[in-house]
Design a protein around this nucleic acid. Structure first.
Lengths: 335, 335
DNA sequence: ATGAAAGCGCTAACAA
DNA sequence: TTGTTAGCGCTTTCAT
């Protein structure tokens, strides 16, 4: 079997307490025994059991990450950022794909608690806020990422969706577009609504009208957005630009344009949101409102670890500024 | 604090042994006390600590997953499949992105062992096979996924890369292509070499020559493959088709074609490998050799869990057949 | 049908 | 400087 602290102690002719001390660099231990013990640990290939450690009340050094779907590029990119920072700080991360189903959320949350994870990062939608509130009462650090529940007092890291919408609109306006459309996510998605709001408001401030018919809500599927984009483009006087709420939806718009024989960006400009790998890979490469994913991931694990360290600050809500990345899917309208 | 088994026992006026038994449905317990105990567990919102359970020698119900990079669509899609099957079977999964660095691999493996994961799925490259051999001596189930180390006796799930290469060549041949090129991964990547081998052999069997100059090795970056594709296409008599070793490289080829003003598929056919979301999202959608990712994920966790259940079969190597998905990036050569 | 007690591997007082 | 001992929360004989 694997060597335990007892094996090391016996082999070194000391008590387990001594071994434990050198292991944790605590107490006063003579250099000789310390060295000897290290040597023996090495020789026995001793690895302290984190399970046992955790049982004595210490951390498990594991974080839970709830996302809708880890195979969605946005979340897998975020996950990578979170994993990297976690690893830096000595933590591992457990991924949980919820498909945005409350039932799965509840199941995973309870599982994570049983596994005594040190903190939970929630990047998935939760319809029933009671689930979240109950979790918060459990004295385990929780941070919402890329999701917002303004009515709940919980640490949050989000991008400023409203500004993102503004950025997209301003860019299009600057290129001379006056007739634009938008592809949003389902209505209940808050961030999508905010993007719409910023987009619309910026347009209207420039005297460009944006009516409900110029907005379509889609599922997160290119097929759906393709169809919706087709609708948007098949009217009497089609828009010259489309703002899609995320990269995947923008792909659908791109396909619709191709289907209609419209050249992008010459005949139709498209701007997306997120800046995942998808945006860089389309043809043409997509102009997009980028979310600072690495930064978000880093921040969110730092917040959790800070809270664990006791330096528990007041509940905070960090709002990051998105950034417009101009690539080749947008152009000035033909004169 | 959280309720423990002691709280439940006390509340029910029984011993913790009894509670433990009803918890695990073991031993003989009168229906009355059983019901009573369940009621109390409910009321106290009692959740057994999996840490404590694990310490008594049982499973941790956690699997480790080593991938090069979880933000790479191929691996995030595989991860999703693994997560789903794990969840079905009651396991959680811990992700570890190694960047294909042996040092990170070693670090993560040791960490996973300390956390007493029940099994490890390795979908990352390992240069030094000693690392793997040492792990295998540890009596913890290990399965290699989408990676091959023929010299090591370890359970493996892979796709038949050779056949994949054949499929791509056969498709191109059938469309009339006689002058083709290929974008591979770095030479040390075994699966890439196999794809090349199948591709070349099928061509040669049809009397089509395939020389070393028609093959370029790339890093996993669209920028690199774009450059290499540009080279391939900038010769006297450029190929009429390119087979890229994975979807990302195919994107680079697509960009190169565009840069040269070559229409895909009219003037250049492209076939890729993997069938991740990228292949579906390009313009035109990519013809690709698909890996059965969901199936691979499912299989690999089943193998681990079977081994844990003691039904330990002999070491096996499961080779899945890839499948050609024809989309719009390939066409017959102009007459 | 139920309970007492040992043990899983480690940490943390408190002694010595 | 080092050792003794009591937990942490649960499982599992072995008694009763």
């Amino acid at each position: 079997m694997k060597a335990t602290i007892y094996d090391v102690a016996k082999e070194a002719g000391v008590s387990i307490a001594t071994v434990s001390k050198v292991l944790n660099g605590k107490g006063k231990i003579s250099t000789e025994t310390r060295e000897a013990i290290f040597a023996i640990m090495e020789r026995l290939d001793y690895q302290p059991s984190l399970i046992a450690t955790a049982l004595t009340g210490k951390r498990t050094f594991t974080l839970g990450l709830l996302v809708p779907d880890i195979s969605n590029p946005f979340f897998s990119e975020i996950a990578r950022a979170i994993e990297d920072q976690s690893e830096q700080l000595g933590y591992s991360v457990m991924i949980c794909s919820t498909d945005n189903k409350d039932a799965k959320v509840e199941k995973y949350i309870s599982l994570l608690q049983q596994k005594k994870v040190d903190g939970i990062i929630i990047a998935t939608g939760i319809d029933n806020k009671d689930i979240l509130e109950q979790l918060l009462s459990k004295s385990i650090p929780v941070v919402l990422l890329a999701r917002d529940m303004p009515l709940v007092a919980v640490n949050t890291v989000v991008v400023d969706d409203y500004i993102g919408g503004c950025l997209a609109a301003a860019h299009l306006l600057e290129l001379g577009h006056r007739s634009v459309a938008m592809l949003g996510e389902r209505e209940k998605v808050r961030s999508s609504r905010e993007r719409v709001r910023g987009f619309r408001q910026t347009l209207e401030e420039s005297g460009v009208t944006f009516t409900p018919e110029q907005l379509r809500h889609c599922d997160y599927k290119v097929e759906d957005s393709r169809v919706k984009a087709l609708e948007l483009l098949s009217v009497e006087e089609p828009p010259t630009a489309i703002f899609a709420c995320n990269d995947m939806l923008a792909v659908g718009a791109l396909q619709a344009a191709k289907e209609l024989g419209k050249k992008v960006p010459e005949e139709l400009s498209i701007v997306s949101f997120d800046n995942t790998v998808l945006a860089a890979v389309t043809n043409p490469p997509m102009t997009t409102v980028a979310q600072p994913m690495e930064h978000m991931g880093k921040l969110v694990v730092n917040m959790i670890v800070d809270e664990l360290q006791g330096s528990a600050p007041v509940r905070q809500r960090v709002v990051l500024r998105p950034e417009l990345i101009i690539r080749e899917s947008t152009a000035a309208i033909a004169p």
